[in-house]
Design a protein around this nucleic acid. Structure first.
Lengths: 159, 159
DNA sequence: CCTTTGTAGTTGCGTATGCAACCGAACAGC
DNA sequence: GCTGTTCGGTTGCATACGCAACTACAAAGG
């Protein structure tokens, strides 16, 4: 690809390339080593961190679609990595938690995650990574928040 | 979502959130205004920039899958935004180029793209955006280049 | 109570994506 | 100039994803 083409300099495009490469890489590691998808890994990470939660809690904490959470939970349960217990307070939901086997896997998984993160971004200072986080956050919130009005009638020939 | 959970601080996750939000936002604008998907928009951007190209050229310049390029080209042709002419030098391929209508759309599309990019990242200096690009590039190349060997046997309990 | 409204979880379906197999044209070696 | 190999493009298929519709339960209001 031409390194200086307009497309190659377009930040949303560079963001997409980087995200796809990083996610693809991590997905491959988890699939090969433990047969976990990224949604499944995210659910395990949160459960290992926070303990028993409902699916609703998990969707809030992971920002994933409730369907994605449901499917990940179903797989984890079938594999014996998590178990559902009825929720005394609310018969609609159940509480999910890691089994002993799930905890064992969790304790292998998290160090690898942190090690991959370190390798992906090694060579940059803490300040630089903080700025990186700030930029990612800003782009995300701008993207969520921009209204159509903000971009219409700006004088570049769009009726 | 808990802002300080381990998952929320995990950079690959933040990268994925930002990329999804930005791509989703841009995809929505292009779909609503012109009925273009992101692959279609990318092909138009490159064709408008570089002139007639083969699909093979387009896959190299956009880093998209050749199937994605093919499908985008097919749609653009059906909509009369691009046209294929036989390639004199090589009968296997054809040359794609924007039609007059395609050029007209291209001249509306590109300013909107640049305006969206500006709004998404306004409030950051040129230096900060350069660092952002550098970090995205580094993460991408590290992700593409890391070998399994780099992560195995590192002493965090993985057989 | 019974009805209405809201919420957690599940399922079905349409869309997007990408790989792998395939087809036809070009090119290399004999 | 025939044969085997490579390459551009296309199609089929299998998977991932998310919305919308649906079920089961809960809470509020009369």
């Amino acid at each position: 690809m031409q390194p200086n083409s307009a497309l190659a300099r377009f930040l949303p495009y560079q963001l997409s390339l980087a995200s796809n490469a990083v996610s693809g890489r991590i997905a491959m590691e988890y699939r090969q080593r433990w047969g976990l998808s990224i949604p499944e890994w995210r659910v395990m990470a949160v459960l290992g961190d926070a303990g028993a939660l409902t699916q609703r809690d998990l969707t809030r904490r992971t920002l994933m679609d409730k369907v994605a959470v449901n499917r990940a939970c179903k797989v984890l349960e079938e594999r014996g990595l998590a178990a559902r217990t009825p929720n005394e307070q609310d018969g609609r939901s159940h509480l999910l938690d890691l089994t002993a086997e799930g905890h064992a896997m969790h304790s292998e998984i998290m160090p690898l995650a942190l090690e991959m993160e370190r390798q992906l971004f090694e060579g940059f200072s803490g300040d630089e990574l903080d700025l990186f986080r700030a930029l990612l956050d800003r782009a995300r919130h701008q993207a969520d928040g921009l209204l159509d009005d903000d971009l219409s009638g700006g004088g570049y020939g769009i009726k």
